[in-house]
Design a protein around this nucleic acid. Structure first.
Lengths: 230, 230
DNA sequence: GACAAGCAGATTGTCGACAATCTAACAAGA
DNA sequence: TCTTGTTAGATTGTCGACAATCTGCTTGTC
């Protein structure tokens, strides 16, 4: 019998598609922080009634990238420097934990997968696709969480990822420089494939530091002139 | 001018109340793991239409205590031994982090609050109110997260709390013993008010260990005869 | 008797309309 | 001029009904 390995059928509810669309719009910066989401307008644009749209929005509220005020509206979350700082320092600890847990579970599939994802980042970089670059970089980074074999840890990472992606997209958007052409992940990947766990943890922390420092500087700049959504 | 210090007005949407009702029902074990939530039946019982009910359920799905399968239904999550184990080992690391961050920020308000919450636990214990006992114990435990001054850390704890409360309630329900009358938090509180951070961290870890060990044993027993919801 | 096709019944997903609430503009009075 | 009350418009919250989908049973055929 031929083994088929089917992937799960796609969620065929409008709600699920709406969630995906909205999330993408927010994480790529199409919808700016603070911006209000007008239900009627969006539902008309998507050719969908308000019911599934509202359910989708409720999900994204719980996911932490939208915020809702009864009878006032639902808005894209604002991003403060402290939010970024909190996410940053939390991520540092989580990373160390994830590496520690994933370390003894690394196998050939792990090494294959990390190369595959690294390649995806490099390709997005070559293609000058900044959105995809952020996305793939986070996926590369997420591998240790997927391998750590802890559902709570993984879930926490996935929640955090949404916001990180949003932060980085915002940053990219702002400075409007095309890409950091350099491959900053080379060392990270090499260490994760190596034998020194402590070194991997240390580098993960420092590597993240760099990206975040820029982000923080950017966010602190924002604090001065708070931009209410367009 | 008299300073008033008003707290925010209560959310007065049906949706919010439904969320609270459902969450309580799940966390106290009124709704058993695996049980299906029939929208029509519940909406009729609550005298509410299905729209706000469905939105509420979407929130709880994202909160991680319900799970939804399109066109099949929404169910209370199943609890496996691994789920509990994952939550447990994750919580250990988080606790150390929370204590570390909260430690230098302890002030008089902190000490007052910890006593207040400790008192609440003792009162629930005396009243033989097991549900409230679990609730207050988790609130006592959550103080270090509230004081750690990190929104992501706090949010993560709150998400985890839901599930922990469910686990413990399940456990209590199963063994049906009224209460552990002994005050197990005495040492925890004393250490948090003391000067030795390391000792507090160590105790937090070990104290949690005890409760969890019982839970795990219980959950492993469940694995054998998986109970589909009533 | 085993198995596939097809048919209720029940349940979830979606829709369009109505009710409740908020916002902002304007008018009236101190 | 400032404050307060009113009102119209827009937007969110909620409802009841319809459409799509699933499940289990029945039926018919081999």
């Amino acid at each position: 019998m031929a083994k088929a390995d089917f992937s799960p059928i796609a969620d065929t509810t409008r709600r699920a598609e709406i969630v995906a669309l909205l999330r993408r719009a927010i994480l790529t910066g199409q919808l700016a922080p603070g911006q209000k989401l007008n239900e009627l307008r969006i539902s008309e644009q998507m050719r969908v009634s308000r019911a599934p749209l509202r359910e989708a929005m409720r999900e994204l509220v719980q996911e932490g990238i939208l915020t809702s005020i009864p009878y006032a509206g639902t808005f894209v979350i604002e991003v403060t420097a402290k939010d970024i700082d909190d996410a940053y320092s939390f991520n540092k600890v989580m990373d160390e934990l994830a590496i520690e847990r994933a370390w003894p579970l690394r196998d050939q599939r792990f090494f294959d997968e990390i190369d595959r994802r690294h390649e995806a980042v490099k390709q997005a970089t070559r293609a000058l696709d900044t959105t995809r670059q952020i996305e793939t970089a986070l996926q590369l980074h997420g591998l240790i969480y997927e391998w750590a074999d802890n559902s709570v840890l993984l879930e926490t990472w996935q929640r955090l990822t949404s916001r990180l992606q949003m932060y980085f997209a915002l940053h990219q958007h702002a400075r409007n420089e095309p890409v950091p052409a350099e491959d900053v992940h080379e060392t990270y990947v090499r260490l994760l494939k190596g034998k020194d766990m402590r070194a991997a943890q240390r580098h993960a922390r420092e590597h993240i530091d760099l990206d975040f420092e820029e982000l923080l500087a950017y966010a602190r700049g924002l604090e001065q002139r708070p931009s209410r959504g367009a």
